[in-house]
Design a protein around this nucleic acid. Sequence first.
DNA 1: GTCTTGACGTTTA
DNA 2: CTAAACGCCAAGA
Length: 114
Amino acid sequence: MKLLEKNKDFFDLTYQVCREIPEGRVTSYGAIAKYLGAVRGARMVGWAMNNAHSMPDIPAHRVVNRNGQLTGKIHFSPPEAMEQLLKQEGINVENDTIINFKEVYWDPSIELSL
DNA sequence: GTCTTGACGTTTA
DNA sequence: CTAAACGCCAAGA
């Protein structure tokens, strides 16, 4: 029996979580990674997001790094779209950084509460 | 087939 | 306190 399934790839799981991010909320790569069981696999989450460009409905703009900094905005088109979208949802973004990051922080392990 | 880079985060010096 | 290295796993060259 190959119960060893990491059935859904790390990527798919990441996409699922991203879709579950409510409006006006943001999360960090590490939080998702930890939720998936890879505390130090935050980089994979970022890579998954890169692949997310091929996915419909992946609010990657709601995913930022641990510092609340919009590190991935450069991958948007245009990059300004990211902070625009975040502000549009009521998130205070300034200097490519979320001001009320802790207020809009959304943790899958808590909100999804498994 | 091997080496480097990459939307990060944690730990150690 | 700050600075640097390590660890995760995958894709590109």
